[in-house]
Design a protein around this nucleic acid. Structure first.
Lengths: 208, 208
DNA sequence: GCCTATTTTGAGTAAACACTCAACAAAATG
DNA sequence: CATTTTGTTGAGTGTTTACTCAAAATAGGC
């Protein structure tokens, strides 16, 4: 049954993602994984080599989903800056247990594994850098479109944006109250809005 | 030897703090603790009941040190807003391995234990709230002194400040380059500066 | 419908885990 | 100096850990 294998594999990795992102790498045991994946130890090891490899594959999937979600935001938004703002707005509206809102697994992974599993934390670090690149690219597009000043330091803006996302996600995980969370997201959105060059509305008015 | 006990206890907890804050709760084994505290298992359990209790006591110590450091900043600063800015500046100047700059153990603890050890993560959550109170109190003092507008929402400002500290600490742990880290801290300081009511320098000039 | 190739199975393994306790050592008290 | 009180010791406890492998089940090709 060669055809069904990749499907099962996806299902298994999604189940592992659920488990790992909740309990973390060290606190998740193989017993937990056996139950979540509905697989016996032998099958798990045949499919994924070992716990570390399974985690790394799971983390890769998390990264791909995250990157996809960010790109989707840019595609539906009217402009790069709108896309970034919408992304924050969406995070600000998440409640705990919302799959979107759970504490960034990349950050969690780095904190959990940097002292004990170098390869895992190196993966997480790489993925964070990839996402940062996408964010910087969005600021670059915003610059080209004249949304932000032509001398804006997009790398710096990207770094700042990503650290805001991290902070917001962690507060979400901590479970602060809904109003405080929305307020925090609004503050971050306002920070973005400040960067914008005011669109010349008067030009439109006089053109009427 | 009743007198020497508390001293040994402090030394032991400091050693545990070093170990736990690096490896985290789940990845630290009793073997590790035996080596770091230079104590045999029996002594550790006689002194600290069990691993969880030792961790909670260690976390309490971390909290007390953090709170003390923040308060010290306010005492040496010229004003509450200066104190907050200096705190960020100091974090921005930290290099990894700097004891000040290691990823906030409270955040790390929450991410590491919220799914498995409720009591530990509840402690961490409480301590974060305590620190938030101190930050809000500083904004309140700034308001009373006329450093920031009288209608400023100090709770919201405090929440925002704390999330900035969290984000900065995590970037520090990730080990981003020195310039990027300093830039990030400067952005956060600039955000603080924006809140300030401009001091009326012209009044001093005309008074001359 | 047999055969070969691929997966799945789950009891089992050695090592590591958090933790205990009877015996011991050292200090404080009288 | 004897006695009690307090702290230390480390081999040993049962359990859990990540992981293995010979055997069984299940596929697809002919």
């Amino acid at each position: 049954m060669k055809k069904s294998r990749p499907y099962n594999r996806e299902v298994a990795i999604d189940a592992a993602l659920n488990l790992f992102s909740e309990k973390g790498y060290h606190a998740t045991s193989l017993k937990d994984l056996e139950a979540a994946l509905n697989m016996k130890p032998g099958s798990i090891y045949a499919a994924f080599t070992n716990k570390e490899t399974l985690y790394r594959e799971t983390l890769k999937r998390y990264f791909e989903q995250s990157q996809k979600a960010l790109k989707a935001e840019f595609e539906t938004a009217k402009s790069p800056m709108d896309g970034l703002a919408n992304y924050l707005r969406q995070l600000g509206a998440c409640r705990p247990n919302d799959p979107h809102g759970r504490a960034c697994m990349l950050i969690k992974t780095i904190l959990d594994t940097s002292a004990t599993d170098e390869r895992i934390s190196a993966d997480a670090s790489t993925y964070l850098s990839e996402i940062l690149k996408d964010i910087i690219a969005a600021f670059d597009r915003a610059k080209a479109l004249g949304e932000i000043p032509h001398d804006a330091d997009t790398t710096r803006l990207g770094q700042r944006f990503q650290s805001n996302v991290t902070a917001l996600r962690i507060e979400l995980h901590r479970g602060i109250n809904e109003a405080a969370q929305a307020a925090l997201a609004e503050d971050m959105i306002a920070e973005l809005a400040q960067l914008r060059i005011p669109q010349d509305i008067s030009a439109n008015i006089t053109a009427d």
